[in-house]
Design a protein around this nucleic acid. Structure first.
Lengths: 225, 225
DNA sequence: GATCTCCAGTCCGTATGCAAGATACAGGAA
DNA sequence: TTCCTGTATCTTGCATACGGACTGGAGATC
């Protein structure tokens, strides 16, 4: 028998979750914005049940905050949050790169180059949101090739916040894309050459500089989008 | 006004989640056992809604597997799973210890000593399950004092599986508790002395030896409890 | 005996209804 | 004016109902 398997249609919960996740990440909603289950269910054309379940999942990803009997809100990062998130992100990414290098170097390098090309394209001809999305894809490559599902899961658990911060906070910064692009090139070079220590320090610089930028924006009045 | 605040009663979802989590971790249910929402809701005396939500959360912790339209099952680890989990656990714990050492050394040390004493007590006078629980508490100390919520969250995301493996797989092994206890003592000593490299290697040995033990049990026929 | 078909039982996905807590605001008392 | 209080209206928490999808087995067919 040939393989005729069809993929399952996504459940409403999954659809709603993805839709809301994108809305938050792409800054269609501001930090702290209120989300009523009923209003959402009406806007999305489904009942409250799948909306409710999707919100519960998003809470576990840190993208929304559910306050019992009060309401659900888009997450609102504090400076401290962002700092801890960046430190954690660095831990995960540096470990993932280590695993990539020792286990799937060629495949990872190829994927990184593809992602880099997409970033260049977005920088040249796309919007800043396009660039932010391509940036997100680049960093996901590490985890797709690291060969450890748990590492990937842990990253997925924070990737939403990371991506949201990227869009909300770095998109408006002038010159940020160009600096970021240069650092990504350096990372790929170091990876290709197998210089792990260099890679680590570039990654560290990359993430911590992003943190600085975010902190500045946060201090100067929160969500600018 | 004196502080009269009352704590919120836990939601049914939280209660059900905790109850099921404990049931799985304490090996009241075997790996792969089937969990019907309806049967659970009846057994727990609540409706299907909170049960359903609790199961969704447990899935994200990797403790159950939900197969659409078929049913929900207690997770069933493969050898590969366990290997990846151990590697990941080592990554998280070593990072957490590093943070503890640099940020909250005294408090962490005190808490580790407390946890160690509880383990000794369980080893001397408790059941093997008691020891397993005390072991779990010991490792949680790292994350309570590491000062990074994201690191703690990531650990919580796998701690259920770790704890479940501990109970299901290591409880039946002869002499395992004593070896484990000795290693924990070594860890605390190294931490107290600030010997980070030693600490790392002890932790690595500790986790990887546990992995060996689990793998043996798994190969010899799965869940023995 | 092997295979197919149908059916009953079980499970989940979703919609909806009701109850209870939280909040905002108007209106009255000091 | 200022403070308190009752109430309308919002929110979520949970229960329940219905329908579709899947599974396993009895019986028919070859």
């Amino acid at each position: 028998m040939p393989d005729l398997r069809v993929e399952q249609p996504k459940s409403l919960v999954a659809i709603v979750e993805e839709r809301l996740r994108n809305a938050i990440i792409d800054a269609e909603m501001r930090f702290g914005a209120s989300l009523s289950e009923e209003a959402l269910s009406e806007a999305l054309g489904v009942s409250r049940t799948p909306v409710r379940e999707a919100l519960a999942r998003l809470q576990l990803q840190g993208l929304v905050t559910i306050v019992p009997k009060k309401g659900t809100f888009v997450f609102a990062p504090t400076e401290e949050d962002v700092a801890e998130l960046c430190v954690f992100r660095y831990m995960l990414e540096t470990q993932a790169l280590r695993e990539c290098m020792s286990k799937a170097r060629a495949a990872a390098l190829a994927a990184m180059n593809d992602a880099l090309a997409a970033m260049e394209a977005a920088l040249a001809g796309g919007t800043r949101h396009d660039y932010a999305r391509a940036d997100t894809v680049f960093h996901e490559v590490f985890f797709q090739h690291c060969g450890n599902r748990y590492l990937g899961n842990a990253y997925r658990g924070v990737s939403g916040r990371v991506a949201a911060l990227r869009t909300h906070l770095s998109v408006p910064l002038e010159g940020e894309q160009e600096r970021s692009m240069a650092e990504h090139h350096q990372m790929v070079e170091a990876f290709a050459a197998g210089r792990l220590a260099d890679l680590d320090s570039i990654l560290h610089r990359h993430i911590m500089r992003a943190w600085d930028a975010y902190a500045d924006v946060l201090r100067s009045g929160g969500d600018p989008v």
